[in-house]
């Protein structure tokens, strides 16, 4: 087996999950690149007859939807929305979750109890329902979607970070730092956090995947930004014409599948590479 001393990136490259995930993710990145180059126009402009089948007209390789909007243009712009939402929402969740997890795990006592209670309250609320309420109240837009997903998915991070910090709190090097008179915040920043990062990165990848799914679900339900092309919204609109024009819902469906799978695999890959020593 791989030696645990070999560098992280080499272990990652040997992980089939990570490599497959990265390859799948490259697809989305190519789409984003296309949205910035060949498809710079408005993807929602109605400029062709509706229901052109895929691979029948060179101008519309993936056909047009029921309004006569180019499918490929919508797909590549949808990639932007999905990835941006996924990354920003995951970042919000990681920041919030890490903050509460570190505070609770490091200081213990009433701080820990307060942080844990807050986390539990959020954990008991169904994530998608809470996101729906938040988006509806804030008015559907790209930013409200990101915020809503971020605000509803951080408890996972807190639950993972807290025990990790509690474990690190008992390590010799943290004790040594405390004895040497380092203030707690400095200890957290310099000694604790760097050791938490790998775990969080693995988790964040999965968070991105779930955030993309949640964004699609919201857009599917009609709670996306109506001014932007989005995979979920395409499925929502295409669902009703599934029997005459399967491709309107199927293409964005595959795109979501590929992207979510990519992030999930990357997360798994990182996790495996990090935790070899624990096996």
């Amino acid at each position: 087996m791989t030696s645990e001393r070999s560098p992280l990136w080499r272990r990652l490259l040997r992980s089939p999950a990570f490599v497959t995930g990265t390859a799948l993710l490259a697809l989305s990145l190519v789409m984003i690149l296309m949205s910035a180059t060949f498809y710079r126009g408005n993807p929602l402009s109605v400029d062709s007859p509706p229901f052109i089948e895929p691979v029948t007209e060179a101008a519309h390789p993936l056909g047009t939807d029921m309004l006569g909007r180019d499918m490929l243009a919508q797909m590549v712009h949808g990639a932007r929305v999905s990835l941006l939402t996924g990354l920003v929402a995951a970042a919000v969740a990681v920041l919030l979750g890490a903050l509460l997890g570190v505070l609770g795990g490091y200081f213990g006592g009433w701080v820990d109890r307060a942080c844990t209670r807050i986390t539990e309250v959020f954990q008991t609320l169904p994530q998608l329902l809470l996101a729906i309420v938040l988006v509806a109240v804030l008015t559907p837009s790209l930013w409200s979607t990101m915020l809503a997903i971020g605000l509803t998915s951080w408890p996972q991070v807190a639950r993972v970070v807290r025990p990790e910090v509690m474990r690190l709190r008992q390590t010799d090097f943290v004790h040594a730092a405390a004895l040497s008179g380092m203030p707690p915040l400095r200890i957290i920043w310099h000694e604790v956090l760097p050791n938490v990062v790998p775990t969080v990165v693995a988790l964040a990848s999965v968070l991105v995947a779930t955030a993309i799914l949640t964004e699609s679900a919201l857009a599917f339900l009609g709670l996306g930004d109506p001014n932007l092309a989005s995979w979920g919204a395409m499925i929502g609109a295409g669902r009703s014409v599934l029997r005459d024009a399967w491709y309107v819902a199927a293409f964005p469906g595959f795109a979501i599948l590929a992207t979510v799978l990519a992030f999930a695999l990357i997360g798994n890959g990182i996790n495996d590479a990090l935790h070899l020593r624990r096996r």
Binding site: N42, S45, V46, L67, G222, N227, A237, S240
Partner: peptide
């Protein structure tokens, strides 16, 4: 309903 949403999309594009 979805008809009304499609109408909104069309109006936006036509006014543009």
């Amino acid at each position: 309903g979805e008809e009304y949403r499609r109408a909104g999309d069309l109006i936006k594009q036509q006014l543009k």
